[in-house]
Amino acid sequence: MSLRAVRAAQILWPAFVVAGVIEMVVFAWVDPGDITLLGEHVAPQAVYTLAFFVFWALTAVSGLISHWLLNANGQSGADHVVAQPSLTREGRRSHRRHHRHHARSMA
């Protein structure tokens, strides 16, 4: 999968899920049968569909703006992740010694 496709999926999939949640919340309080467009009643299925795509588009734009802001300085998103020290055998020993020392000092 290309990097562009991965980035699109990283934006569109969460937006899809959030749009579904927004749809459920909104239509828990709003009856789609009561909605009119230009004085005409619209079928509830059309209201559900149109609302879902509007919610999806808005949340996708929000994700796209966040992605753009993270990469505004020319760095990839991976550059913003704090690197964890590698846990080599010596690193694990040092980590355990640190925790034992910390536990003794707390007692």
Rank of each mutant, 00 (worst) to 15 (best):
M1C: 11
S2L: 08
S2M: 03
L3P: 00
L3D: 10
V6H: 15
V6M: 11
R7N: 06
A8D: 12
A9H: 07
A9N: 15
Q10N: 13
I11P: 00
L12S: 10
L12V: 09
W13M: 14
P14C: 10
A15W: 02
F16V: 03
V17C: 05
V18A: 08
A19T: 12
V21R: 02
V21I: 13
I22C: 14
E23Q: 15
E23I: 05
V25N: 08
V26E: 05
V26S: 04
F27H: 06
A28F: 12
W29H: 05
D31T: 07
P32W: 08
G33P: 01
I35F: 07
I35A: 00
I35W: 05
T36A: 07
L37C: 01
L38E: 08
L38Q: 11
G39W: 01
E40G: 01
E40M: 12
E40V: 03
H41W: 01
H41A: 11
H41D: 02
V42Y: 06
A43L: 03
Y48S: 03
Y48G: 05
Y48E: 11
T49V: 09
L50E: 09
L50A: 15
L50M: 09
A51Y: 09
F52G: 02
F55G: 05
F55C: 10
F55T: 07
F55E: 15
F55R: 04
W56A: 13
A57T: 13
A57D: 00
A57G: 15
A57Q: 02
L58T: 07
A60V: 10
A60R: 08
V61N: 01
V61Y: 11
S62K: 12
S62Q: 13
G63D: 07
I65H: 04
S66G: 12
H67F: 15
L69E: 11
L69Q: 10
N71T: 13
A72S: 12
A72I: 13
N73S: 13
N73G: 09
Q75H: 03
Q75C: 01
S76M: 02
G77P: 00
H80E: 04
V81H: 09
V81R: 11
V82C: 03
V82L: 12
V82T: 06
A83R: 14
A83Y: 07
A83K: 15
Q84W: 08
S86I: 00
L87I: 05
T88C: 10
T88D: 13
G91W: 02
R92Q: 15
R93F: 11
S94A: 14
S94N: 13
H95M: 06
R96M: 08
R97W: 02
H98I: 01
R100E: 12
H101A: 09
H101R: 11
H101M: 01
H102V: 04
H102N: 02
S105M: 13
S105Y: 00
A107G: 15
